[in-house]
Each structure stands twice: as structure tokens, then as C-alpha cells.
Design a binder for these strands. Structure first.
Lengths: 225, 225
DNA sequence: GCGCCGTAGACTGTAGGCGAAAGCCAATCC
DNA sequence: GGATTGGCTTTCGCCTACAGTCTACGGCGC
């Protein structure tokens, strides 16, 4: 089905719409929570947030429900929303689940990966290494996320990807403050992982990913001391 | 801290509150979807549902958002909610993830299980076998759910449990229609699983659970033919 | 007869308002 | 002096109303 307008297909910015307000409120609140502008345990009042963001209460309500569903706020009935307070046990559980999901993704990715896809992974890996070399923590973390997301995409399991996305964002919340400690080694492991995927060695990819996320957990726990 | 009223503690019905309306709407819609009263692909109009349930649009909206988040309906922007249409690929992906989560739960449960907990599992298993013997499919399915939930509880990982609960409910949607085919064998496998957990053999428990859910998948796919 | 445009209908997205439940504090009674 | 109870404030839960947007249909020009 060809367009008759002669316009290039993908280049049209699609008349960028602001999108549903609730989603933007969701993103805004998520940003405020992850940046610790809203402290754990803090009571979030709908009307306050609504006034502060310049919208009505309804989008705020819907955003809060989504935040609750995603584990960012606790919604006590007839009382309101409170920013979730992370605990040691919960961080540990999240990392356990993350290990599980990422390892499975690595296994599936190894089974499905095509040559160009592997090239993409290597490019991302190189990008991450450059970021580490330049001591750009933000870029390194962002590239890390993209790399993991790409592997998840290669796994070709939408359900798995969705769950992993949820868990990953929360893990990153705990993890980001200590990301600096774990720069070089992380990307060395990424290299090994990509090599395993390129070799179609699912067994090895699973194992490397398991060790990789396990290192993340150890780094997190060492931070406490 | 003893009560001075002299009233029996547990016997007070606690003045059964109807609970938040949005939750009841959620349950009602979920019931309508799982029972196929609302067909896959059907367009759900907020005002219609609201009128039909005797409530306003707001609780319906919030329920629909939760249903969307849980994968029961697809929410197309500025167009409305549509009952999710299950596909073969998705069922397969769900079962893959379910296998993963349940196997991990079995492993953790084997590490944590106490003697009374194991007794509880065996009791549930016996109950399930009785239901199968009596050809009571509904009871067998319900007991099956309770058994898996109990194992998940023993695993002691709240995050894992939450994800598994989501996946399980959706899996059950696909699976229930063919549950009848898989009665006796399923509970035999449950017996083996409990034995492995009782022996604290995480390796074996993982393997059995993997095979168990894999059988479920095969049963599902055979239905197609 | 065919295709385009304009208009009407319907539904969602958002705003504001009212009633009710929960928590808090002070005054009161034992 | 301590516990209780009453009222008051805060905040949520829900309803109603309005504006924006997408879809579908009918008329008009070619």
C-alpha cells in the first residue's frame, strides 16, 4: 500500500501529540520519585499534586493507581498514596527475580539472534565502554539499559519483556546510586555475554547473565557496609 | 492487648464493607471476560458498562485501566477499551514465563519449607485428588491454584509471587477450557514435587516443576488439533 | 459512477463538586 | 490522672458536566 503523497514514510513526525495527560503525570511523578524529590513514606495528596502540576485530580488519580500497580507507591484505602519505602529484603527479592528473567532472556536470545542483531549488540557494548572511559555515568547507565532491552527484544517473548521491564526499572532505582562502583567489570561481562549469544550457546549465555546480575547484587549489598 | 468488651474476637463479622467500587467493577468485568460473556475484540464502551452496572463512568475507567495493565483489555488511545484477543504466540510466551517462575518458586520452597508446611501441601494434594476422583473439575482447578499459591508463599519472595499471580491468572484463562483433559497425571506430578520439596532437593523440585508446566503447555497445544 | 469534502454523532479525556469515611485533638467524665 | 467521647478537619471516593477527537455517513463536484 503506497502513499500517493510522495512524502517519505517514516520522516513525518506524525504531528506529535502530547499524549494522554495521565501518562505524562505518571512520568512526571516517576521522575520525582526516582530523583528522591518525593521521599519514601511521604504522603501524596491528590489535590496538592494536581495543583502543582496544573491539572485536575482525575489524571493524578489514574497516574497514582498505575504507580501503585508498578510498586512505586502504596495506596492505602480511604487514606491516600504514600511513596513506597524500599527495604533490604525487597531489593534482594527483586534482584533474584531479575536474575531469573534476564538469564532466560539471554538463553532465548542466544537461540534467536541474527548476525546483524549481534552487530547491534556489539555496537551498544562499545558505546558503553566509551561512556565508562569518559567517566560519563549517566550515559553508561542508559546504554546498559538499552543493551539489556535489546537482548530482551531478541528473546522474542513479549510477556517476559514486559515483566522484566517492570522489575528492571525498580531495580535501577535501588541500583543507580551505586552504579559508579561497577563500571569496567560490568562491560567486560557484557562482552562475554554477547560472545556466547553469537556462538548460539544458550547454556553459557544463561550462566554469564546469572553471574552478571549476581555481581550486581553483591555490589549492592557491599554498599551497606 | 485483650479486649474488655467480652465479645468473641473473630466472630464479629467486621460489618462487611462493600469495598472500593472500582475493585468490585474490576472483579465483575473480569468475571464477564473470563466467562466469555464479553467476547475477545469486543468494544467496551464506558457509559454502557457504567449504566449496566449501575455506577458512574469513573470507577469503570479505573477498572478498565487495571484490566489493561493486567493484560485483559487493550486500551487504544482516544478510542476506548477492547477485550484482549489471545493468540497462540502469546499463550506460548505466557507458559514459558510461567514455567520459569514456578520452577524458581519450587526451588526456593524446597530450601525454606518446614514440616508443617509440607503437611499442608500434602493435604491440599489429597484434596485435589479427591476432587479429580469425584470428577469435580471446578474444585480441582481451584485446589490446583491454591497448591501453587502455597508453594509460592513458601518460596518467600513477594515480588516473584506477584508476578506469578499475574501470569497464572492469564494462563488459567487459556487453560481452563482444556483442564478436564489433564486431571490425574497432574496430581501425580504434584505428589512428586512435594516429595522433592520435603527432601529439600531444590534441583529435583525445579526439574519436576519444569516438566509439570511443560506438560501443561503440551496439553494446551494438543487441543488445537 | 467515483472520489472528496463537510458535517453530525459518539465516545473518550478532563475538570470541578458533593458526600462520606478516617484521623486528630480537645473537652469531659469517671 | 487517665481513658473516652464528641466534634472538627482533612482527604478520598464517586458523580455530573463540558470540551476535544475520532469515525462514519451523506452530499457535492468531477
Amino acid at each position: 500500500m503506497l502513499s500517493t503523497t510522495g512524502l517519505p514514510q517514516g520522516a513525518v513526525p506524525k504531528l506529535e501529540r502530547p499524549g494522554p495527560l495521565r501518562d505524562r503525570v505518571y512520568e512526571a511523578l516517576l521522575e520525582l520519585i526516582t530523583t528522591r524529590a518525593l521521599r519514601p513514606g511521604q504522603h501524596l495528596v491528590e489535590s496538592e499534586l494536581a495543583g502543582h502540576l496544573g491539572v485536575s485530580r482525575q489524571p493524578v488519580r489514574e497516574a497514582l493507581q498505575r504507580l501503585n500497580r508498578d510498586g512505586w507507591v502504596d495506596l492505602r484505602p480511604a487514606q491516600g498514596a504514600f511513596v513506597h519505602e524500599p527495604t533490604e529484603a525487597e531489593a534482594d527479592q527483586l534482584l533474584t527475580v531479575r536474575t531469573l528473567l534476564e538469564a532466560e532472556a539471554a538463553r532465548l536470545a542466544a537461540a534467536n539472534a541474527s548476525a546483524p542483531a549481534i552487530a547491534e549488540l556489539e555496537e551498544l557494548c562499545a558505546e558503553g565502554e566509551r561512556a565508562v572511559a569518559a567517566d560519563d555515568v549517566d550515559a553508561a547507565v542508559a546504554t546498559n539499559a538499552r543493551l539489556h532491552a535489546k537482548i530482551m527484544e531478541l528473546a522474542g517473548n513479549a510477556v517476559l519483556a514486559e515483566l522484566a521491564a517492570q522489575v528492571d526499572r525498580r531495580v535501577r532505582w535501588y541500583y543507580t546510586p551505586v552504579a559508579r562502583q561497577r563500571g569496567q567489570q560490568s562491560w567486560t561481562e557484557h562482552r562475554e555475554l554477547i560472545a556466547a549469544i553469537a556462538d548460539r550457546d544458550g547454556q553459557r549465555a544463561t550462566e554469564i547473565m546469572r553471574v552478571h546480575t549476581e555481581h550486581t547484587r553483591q555490589t549492592y549489598h557491599e554498599r551497606e557496609k
